[in-house]
Computed example of a mutant assay.
Amino acid sequence: MLSILLGTVALPVLAAEPEACKVVRMAEPGWNDLAFTTGVALTLLKALGYEPQSSLLGIDVIYLSLKNKDLDVFLGYWDPAMVTYYKPYKEEGSVEDVVTNLKGAKYTFAVPAYVWEAGVKDFADLQKFPDQFEKKLYGIEPGSNQLMIDATKDQALGLDGWEVVESSEQGMLAEVQRRAKDKAFIVFQGWAPHPMNTAFDIRYLTGGDKFYGPDFGAATVSTQVRKGYLKECPNVARLLSNLTFDIAFENKGMGYLMTDGLSPEEAAVKALADEPQRLDAWLEGVTAFDGKNGRDMVKAKLSL
């Protein structure tokens, strides 16, 4: 279906996008990888003459908002980590997939290297050190830790009575940093791409296939939209179908957020200045909102 819809966008006839498409409503859950990629989308859409907006929402709220047509675009469906969140909306058809925008990602439990060397190499090893861990597992924002919560309920792992501490990505990593200074035990949600993989000496735990999937939660990230959006706004649909990333690019962009303190859009502009050639593929067949050449418009607006 998507290929049919996008095929109409590729026709060599320039026409302005419908006025209703000018405002593009997006959301992300506060994770730095999604903040960065959403920042890239915002930057490109603004340069094309659109008026994109981005909200910071929990995963469950994002999906409900897509279903209710209060949001248009979400760039952050992690598969398989978010399968349980997406499943009911996929089954009813209220949320649609556009493209896999990142491959080679992973997501599962992680510990500092000194904890791994002390004998915590698998999910099943956690129960051997309840006092050292203070029976706590550290997650990110509320609504995004269901897999971690599910693990505490699995009788085979012996984690009855363990608490999942929910805060935010930044709060969780601040706790990792604090405990690492004292070589204290901590287990937390770890993933790649993310600068945590270079900022800390960490190891990913085996044994989580039941929850996160095989190969340390090997994952893909996909772009999704509300039902009907691809047909309503075919030019934005073309941009979204072209907008794919890689681990190295996202690591760089997240570094600009976390180390340099840039905003998502500032980080996007800096990353694009480093690699302007990415625009050629991203803007293939894409026009500006008013129907003019999209690639020329973006390069001019961003001085690239």
Rank of each mutant, 00 (worst) to 15 (best):
C233S: 14
L137T: 00
E275H: 12
P142W: 12
G158D: 00
E134K: 13
A118Y: 10
G207K: 11
R25K: 15
G139D: 05
Y212W: 11
K227V: 03
M196H: 11
M254Y: 06
V23G: 13
T84Y: 05
K292E: 10
F129Y: 14
V111Y: 00
G119H: 01
T244R: 14
Q224M: 08
W31A: 11
T223M: 13
L5C: 13
F129N: 04
L42Y: 03
S144R: 07
L75H: 07
W162Y: 13
M254H: 06
T287N: 15
N68E: 14
M254N: 03
T206R: 13
Y107V: 11
V99I: 14
V40K: 00
A192K: 12
S222H: 13
A124E: 10
L239V: 15
K46I: 07
G207Y: 05
K69M: 14
S55L: 11
L137A: 00
Y89I: 08
L173T: 09
A288K: 05
T206I: 10
G39D: 01
K153L: 11
L66K: 10
A151S: 14
L173S: 04
G171L: 09
Q277A: 01
L283G: 05
H194K: 06
Y107Q: 06
K181P: 05
L56M: 09
E166I: 07
L75R: 09
P29V: 08
S167K: 14
D274A: 13
L6M: 09
E284V: 01
Y107K: 10
N145P: 06
L66F: 09
A288I: 07
L126G: 00
A16Y: 09
L157M: 00
S55R: 06
E166H: 12
D246I: 03
S65P: 00
G171W: 03
T43I: 13
L44F: 10
R179I: 07
L243V: 11
I149F: 04
L71A: 12
V95Y: 04
W282C: 03
D131V: 12
V298K: 12
L257W: 12
P52G: 08
I62Y: 04
K103V: 08
A199C: 02
R295P: 05
T84I: 03
I140Q: 01
D70F: 11
Y107E: 06
A47Y: 09
